[in-house]
């Protein structure tokens, strides 16, 4: 059940890169245990919004709350390194290009956060990391270096690395876009399981079928704003906004499929 207080609360978020205004006053609530999919054309600001949620990008203006931590970007003073690190430690993120640490084995990648950030004992951190590798089905690859893993396996290690910090939410940034088609399934399967277990998540994705299936709500973004938001059965099947309609028309074979299934 979603509680009255959402897990993530974003208020009037603005972000510009130079002259380019990327986010134009985004507000978004993500209830605990829900999965929000951000869809929309490239350049709409989806990834920037995601990177603002864990403050990898510093918003110019606005407020971000995750759990009981709030960062207000209204003033001129930016939060310091320590504050930011503490904030991010409780917000997991998985990237399009995996970004595993190439000089560490799979298990070292996963245990890096607990060891170096949570200051856990090396043995404890390793046991914990092994458990998360097992969860993503890669216990047998614990001692492999990233360069010896397939893209799908690397991405599953990256998910385990995020999970090892016991985050309150996980942000997925186009995590299957760089994968060969035959490797997409194994990664989506892991995400689906997490969603079923009630992990709060925000996903930027171009996998429309997956978004329809897993997301509790879908937000369509265009030109730095959330244009339309609601359950996938509404936004993706009967979009109200003309820009959403135009975007989804490109996936029309898919919309037809779901219109058929939905009726």
């Amino acid at each position: 059940m979603a509680t009255a207080e959402p897990m993530i609360e974003i208020n009037d978020l603005w972000k510009a890169f130079g002259a380019l205004q990327v986010l134009k006053g985004i507000s978004l609530d993500v209830p605990g245990g829900s999965a929000v999919a951000l869809i929309g054309p490239s350049g709409a600001g989806k990834s920037t919004l995601l990177r603002c949620i864990n403050l990898l990008e510093q918003p110019d203006r606005g407020r971000v709350r995750v759990g009981d931590q709030t960062i207000d970007c209204a003033g001129a003073k930016l939060p310091d390194d320590k504050q930011l690190a503490g904030f991010r430690a409780r917000t997991g993120m998985v990237f399009q290009l995996f970004n595993l640490f190439p000089h560490m084995t799979a298990v070292e990648n996963v245990s890096a956060g607990p060891r170096f950030v949570k200051k856990m004992q090396p043995n404890e951190a390793k046991d914990m990391a092994m458990a998360f590798l097992a969860k993503v089905g890669l216990a047998d690859k614990a001692n492999a270096y990233p360069s010896h893993l397939s893209g799908g396996q690397q991405q599953r290690v990256a998910i385990a690395r995020a999970l090892a910090m016991s985050p309150e939410v996980i942000l997925f940034d186009e995590v299957t876009s760089a994968l060969d088609p035959e490797l997409v399934g194994e990664v989506l399967e892991v995400i689906r399981e997490l969603a079923e277990e009630g992990m709060t998540m925000v996903l930027v994705t171009h996998e429309m079928v997956f978004a329809h299936e897993v997301a509790t709500s879908v937000a369509f973004m265009s030109d730095g704003a959330i244009v339309e938001m609601g359950p996938p059965s509404e936004v993706m099947v009967r979009p109200q906004n003309s820009r959403t309609q135009a975007f989804l028309a490109r996936f029309h074979s898919f919309t037809r499929t779901f219109a058929a299934v939905g009726s």
């Binding site: 990898l56 991010r88 993120m93 290009l97 970004n99 000089h103 890096a112 950030v117």
Partner: peptide, 24 residues
């Protein structure tokens, strides 16, 4: 991406340098 990933798990600047960037 290496900075992003290290920061995303909550490492501080000096930790990112020491544990992730410098060894590579």
């Amino acid at each position: 991406g290496q900075w992003d990933a290290a920061r995303a798990i909550g490492m501080r600047y000096v930790q990112v340098l020491r544990r992730v960037i410098l060894p590579q």
